[in-house]
Design a protein around this nucleic acid. Sequence first.
DNA 1: TGAAATGTTGGGGCG
DNA 2: ACGCCCCAACATTTC
Length: 453
Amino acid sequence: MSNTALVWLRRDLRLFDHAALFHALSSGAQVICVFIFDKTILDSLPKSDRRVAFIHASLCQLKQELNALGSDLVVRHGSARALIPRLADEFNAHAVYANRDYEPDAIERDEQIEDHLSAEGKSLHLFKDQVIFERDEILNLSGLMYQVFTPYKRAWLAKMNEQALASYQIRPHLQHLKRCPVSPMPTLAQLGFEAVGVEHLLPGMDGGEQLFNDFCNRIDGYHDARDFPAQKGVSYLSVHLRFGTVSIRELARTAAQMGSQGAQTWLSELIWREFYQQLLWHRPELVTHTFKTEYDTLVFPNNPDFFAAWCAGQTGFPLVDAAMRQLNQTGFMHNRLRMVAASFLVKDLLIDWRWGERYFATHLNDFDLSANNGGWQWAASTGCDAQPYFRIFNPTTQSQRFDPHGQFIRRYCPELAHLGDKSIHAPPPQDNYPAAIVDHAAQRVAALALFRV
DNA sequence: TGAAATGTTGGGGCG
DNA sequence: ACGCCCCAACATTTC
């Protein structure tokens, strides 16, 4: 048998603190890194997609570093199910190493590939890498999944220790990278995508490091600043966490060591991320169904004109519109605004949360199935430890509270920029800005009636 | 990780 | 001085 192993990169586009890479390099095999642009995923995306551009830019950086070490990153375009076994043949590799992905489709894909490989006497090795605690590592005393975040978080923090946060040291093992000629890197155009600027996202390991360093200077203020979209209060690391250009262990370790109120609150957000990942692993049906089953068959009016106005940022509610325009223009939306926009879609426009979930899924640079689904089900009150159905955001009050001077609104709704701090949250009639498409008080009552099952 | 409706309290104007 | 009303301010309940 050969002594070559493949490391299949998926959502872990870095060369440091990397579980699969570490285990492959220390297995004694010669290691080649591969990445597949999976047609089955790419074909469903719009042809101008920042995420594909982000991945592409990150891979270019990764490939360059591997080339500098005399090795290579092999990048192919096609079906991963077919290509991974084929690459294993091509490189005469006896094993494929990868980091575990907890999405239902990914689990099914990996099982199929594992079957295919093992039929040829080869193996697929999967590792925990993108979370501190995965799957069923955090259970309550009855051995069941936690249904409430706070006790989950308490158990998570109690289990957190040096070992759980320790980095995988890659550098001592780099000599086990297989030396090989440089293969061509497909261009975005060859993949069927337009070049779209992602420089502002600082793609790649270098960008992730730069953003994290910058955030470390602000993390103590995170608790107080994070809810104000006009401020630079959040980390902007979500897209890097999504694609693994940063290491969760390094992030969590740093936050845990800092210990300030801001650092603690941010660590709590990282724990929410894992809460939703393990939730989806336990309950894959949440992709299409509500956690609270009594709400699974709610009949939403789903007015298509309302939905179109929401998507376009033309609802006449300035903060909601500014939020949606931020998403449309940049692929990012501030977390506070995700809650406001989601609550507004479900409880003011009375549209099924799945419609909003799908829209966010196609537009968010940091889209992650578990976090997006969890967030939407939280806002819609259908989820695990969701807000109660009667907790309904007042979009105007939220605006006054979290964008008190209308700074954020002015940035994305320039047609309202001339208004004063008082009137900008609920503007008087304007020539170039729509009147409110619904009456909040009336829609609130309608939402309460809809949810009172 | 709300907001609105409803209840309670207490100060001040006034007869 | 006293009772009454009004209503803001705060607290509690409800959705």
